Amino acid sequence: MEPRNRISNKALKVWRVSGIIRAAICWIITIAVLVVTILFDWSYWAIGAAGIISIVVTYISVFLFPSMKWKRWRYEVREKEIEIQSGLFIIKRTLVPMIRVQHVETNQGPLLRKYQLASVEISTAATTHEIPALELSEADELRFYISKMASVEEDDV
């Protein structure tokens, strides 16, 4: 059974804006190829190839990947563990035992801040796991709950 909780649907907006930024960089390169091709009288196949690549990158990074990513991202925090599910083509499910949690923090970049979202990072001795794009209040509550449960687990051992 997969985890119950989804990340905020505002994550779609954030990931699409990020995709637009990536696509804009690709289009700038395409325009540069166009200018160089015209200035140096190069073959026009380079413009066509750059244009096709830019169209594909735009579609994938703005429309396809954000919606696929959002549909697959799920998480659930239980008393003894945290379950995280993510992935685009390959679904990855991770169980993080509460006893292994060393610290929990929330992060907010400029795009997340604009949409009042935050990511929760859960650190163990070996790795860091992230639950991205939660509503700010939900992220703070989750950070507090996980840190409380992790300290309770340590006291029990």
Rank of each mutant, 00 (worst) to 15 (best):
G48Q: 04
W42C: 01
T37M: 05
R16S: 15
P97M: 05
R113W: 11
A150K: 06
N107T: 14
T127E: 13
L136A: 14
L112S: 13
V36L: 12
I82S: 06
P132R: 09
Q85R: 14
W42V: 01
K13F: 14
S119A: 14
R22A: 07
A118I: 02
N5K: 15
F144C: 01
F63S: 05
V56G: 00
I38S: 01
V35I: 15
I122D: 00
L39Q: 06
R6S: 11
F89P: 00
V62N: 01
V17S: 01
H129S: 13
S147F: 11
S67Y: 12
V77S: 03
T94D: 15
Y145I: 07
I131F: 09
W45D: 00
I82L: 06
G87C: 10
T30A: 13
L64A: 04
L39K: 06
W70I: 08
F65R: 03
E81R: 10
K148P: 03
R72Y: 11
I52L: 14
P97T: 07
E141C: 04
M98Q: 06
R113A: 15
T124D: 02
F40Q: 00
A11S: 14
V101E: 00
A139P: 03
K114T: 09
E76V: 12
L112M: 12
A150V: 09
A46I: 11
W42G: 00
F89I: 08
L111C: 07
V152G: 02
E105T: 12
S137G: 06
R16A: 15
E76S: 12
V104N: 07
E141K: 13
D41T: 08
P66D: 07
A150T: 06
W27F: 07
A11T: 06
I52V: 15
E141R: 14
F63V: 06
L34S: 08
V17M: 04
A11G: 13
Y75C: 05
V101M: 04
F144H: 11
F63P: 01
W73C: 08
M68P: 00
S61H: 06
L111E: 02
V57N: 02
L64K: 02
L39E: 04
I91N: 10
A139T: 04
I20D: 00
F89C: 02
E130D: 05
T94V: 15
H129M: 08
S18R: 10
I52E: 00
S119C: 05
C26W: 06
I131V: 09
Q102C: 10
Y44V: 11
D140C: 06
K80Y: 15
A150P: 05
A46P: 03
V104H: 10
V152W: 03
F63Q: 04
E105V: 14
K92D: 15
Q102E: 12
N5E: 11
L117V: 08
R93E: 13
K69N: 13
L95N: 14
Q85P: 03
I29F: 15
V57C: 02
S119W: 08
C26R: 03
V35N: 00
Y115M: 01
Y44E: 03
V77N: 03
L34I: 10
F63R: 08
K92G: 05
Y145D: 03
I20P: 00
E138D: 11
W70G: 11
I91P: 05
I29T: 05
K10W: 12
